[in-house]
Measured scan of single mutants.
Amino acid sequence: TFTSIVTTNPDFGGFEFYVEAGQQFDDSAYEEAYGVSVPSAVVEEMNAKAAQLKDGEWLNVSHE
Protein backbone atom coordinates (compact mmCIF):
# COMPACT_ATOMS: atom_id res chain seq x y z
CA THR A 1 0.00 0.00 0.00
CA PHE A 2 1.38 3.39 -1.01
CA THR A 3 0.54 6.53 0.93
CA SER A 4 1.50 10.18 0.81
CA ILE A 5 1.28 13.31 2.93
CA VAL A 6 1.98 16.93 2.13
CA THR A 7 4.59 18.66 4.27
CA THR A 8 6.28 22.04 4.39
CA ASN A 9 9.07 20.74 6.61
CA PRO A 10 10.76 17.76 4.92
CA ASP A 11 13.28 15.72 6.92
CA PHE A 12 16.09 15.18 4.45
CA GLY A 13 18.22 13.55 7.13
CA GLY A 14 15.98 10.49 7.31
CA PHE A 15 15.21 7.74 4.84
CA GLU A 16 12.20 9.48 3.31
CA PHE A 17 11.11 10.00 -0.30
CA TYR A 18 9.88 13.45 -1.31
CA VAL A 19 8.48 15.03 -4.46
CA GLU A 20 9.07 18.78 -4.69
CA ALA A 21 6.39 21.18 -5.92
CA GLY A 22 6.69 21.45 -9.71
CA GLN A 23 8.23 17.97 -10.05
CA GLN A 24 6.81 14.55 -10.89
CA PHE A 25 7.04 11.36 -8.87
CA ASP A 26 10.13 9.45 -10.04
CA ASP A 27 9.09 5.81 -9.79
CA SER A 28 12.50 4.61 -11.04
CA ALA A 29 14.27 6.43 -8.20
CA TYR A 30 11.72 5.09 -5.71
CA GLU A 31 12.20 1.54 -6.96
CA GLU A 32 15.99 1.92 -6.77
CA ALA A 33 15.87 3.37 -3.24
CA TYR A 34 13.41 0.89 -1.74
CA GLY A 35 13.54 -2.16 -4.03
CA VAL A 36 9.78 -1.91 -4.50
CA SER A 37 8.00 -1.93 -7.85
CA VAL A 38 5.54 0.94 -8.17
CA PRO A 39 2.32 0.13 -10.07
CA SER A 40 1.40 2.54 -12.87
CA ALA A 41 -1.84 3.49 -11.07
CA VAL A 42 0.22 4.61 -8.06
CA VAL A 43 2.56 6.63 -10.30
CA GLU A 44 -0.47 8.39 -11.81
CA GLU A 45 -1.97 9.02 -8.35
CA MET A 46 1.28 10.47 -6.96
CA ASN A 47 1.79 12.66 -10.04
CA ALA A 48 -1.76 14.00 -9.67
CA LYS A 49 -1.09 14.81 -6.01
CA ALA A 50 2.30 16.36 -6.83
CA ALA A 51 0.65 18.58 -9.44
CA GLN A 52 -1.46 20.12 -6.65
CA LEU A 53 1.54 21.11 -4.51
CA LYS A 54 2.13 24.78 -3.85
CA ASP A 55 5.56 26.42 -3.61
CA GLY A 56 7.29 25.28 -0.44
CA GLU A 57 5.31 22.04 -0.22
CA TRP A 58 6.66 18.51 -0.63
CA LEU A 59 4.84 15.21 -1.10
CA ASN A 60 6.22 12.54 1.23
CA VAL A 61 5.61 9.14 -0.40
CA SER A 62 5.86 5.87 1.51
CA HIS A 63 4.70 2.25 1.35
CA GLU A 64 3.87 -0.59 3.72
Rank of each mutant, 00 (worst) to 15 (best):
E44F: 08
E57P: 01
V36R: 00
G22A: 04
G13T: 14
E20Y: 10
S37R: 15
A48E: 13
E57L: 01
G56C: 05
A41L: 10
N60C: 15
T8L: 10
E32D: 10
D55N: 12
G14M: 08
D55T: 14
E31I: 07
F12N: 05
D55K: 14
T1C: 14
T3M: 11
S40G: 10
V19C: 05
E31T: 14
Y34D: 04
E31P: 00
F12K: 07
V38E: 01
A29C: 08
F25M: 07
E45D: 08
D27E: 15
N47F: 03
D11Y: 10
F2C: 04
G14H: 08
E16K: 15
T8E: 07
M46I: 15
F2W: 15
S62K: 15
A50R: 00
S4L: 06
F17V: 04
N60S: 14
P39A: 04
A21F: 13
Q52C: 11
F15Q: 13
A48D: 14
I5F: 15
F12A: 05
V6S: 05
V61H: 02
D11R: 06
V38M: 05
A21C: 09
G56V: 02
A51Q: 11
A51T: 07
Y18F: 09
S28V: 15
E44S: 09
T1S: 12
V6L: 06
A48N: 13
K54Y: 04
E44K: 11
P10I: 05
F15P: 13
F12T: 06
T3C: 13
V36W: 05
A29L: 11
H63F: 11
E31Y: 15
E57R: 00
Q52Y: 06
Y18C: 05
F15R: 14
V19W: 01
E20K: 14
S4A: 13
V43F: 05
Q52H: 08
V36K: 04
T1Y: 13
V38S: 03
S62A: 09
T8Q: 10
S28T: 13
P10C: 09
S40Y: 11
E20M: 13
S28R: 15
Y34V: 04
G56T: 03
K54T: 08
Y18I: 04
E32V: 11
Y34E: 00
V43E: 05
A48C: 12
E44W: 07
D55L: 13
S4D: 03
E57D: 04
F12L: 10
D55Q: 14
E32Q: 14
A50W: 02
T7M: 06
S40D: 10
V61L: 04
E16M: 14
E44P: 00
A50L: 09
T3R: 07
F2K: 00
V36H: 06
H63G: 03
S37W: 10
V61P: 01
E20P: 14
S37K: 15
G35S: 07
E45Y: 09
Y18L: 08
L59K: 00
V42Y: 04
D27Y: 15
S4K: 01
A41Q: 11
F25I: 03
L59V: 01
F2A: 00
T1H: 13
G35H: 09
V42G: 01
E45H: 06
F2T: 02
P39Q: 04
K49Y: 10
E32H: 13
I5G: 07
T1N: 09
S62G: 07
L53K: 00
W58D: 02
P39K: 00
E45A: 09
Q23A: 13
G14C: 12
I5P: 02
I5M: 13
F25P: 00
I5C: 14
S37L: 10
F12G: 05
V6E: 03
E57N: 03
Q23C: 12
G35E: 05
H63Y: 13
N9F: 09
F25L: 04
T7N: 03
K49Q: 14
V38N: 00
E32P: 02
F17I: 03
A29F: 07
F2E: 01
A41D: 11
V43A: 08
A21Q: 08
K54M: 08
F12E: 04
I5V: 13
G13P: 06
L53R: 00
K49N: 09
G35L: 05
T7L: 07
A48Y: 12
Y30T: 00
Q24E: 10
A29I: 08
L59Q: 01
D26R: 05
Y34P: 01
L53E: 02
G35P: 01
T8I: 09
G35Q: 07
S62N: 07
N47K: 05
E57H: 06
F25T: 00
E44G: 07
T1I: 14
N9V: 09
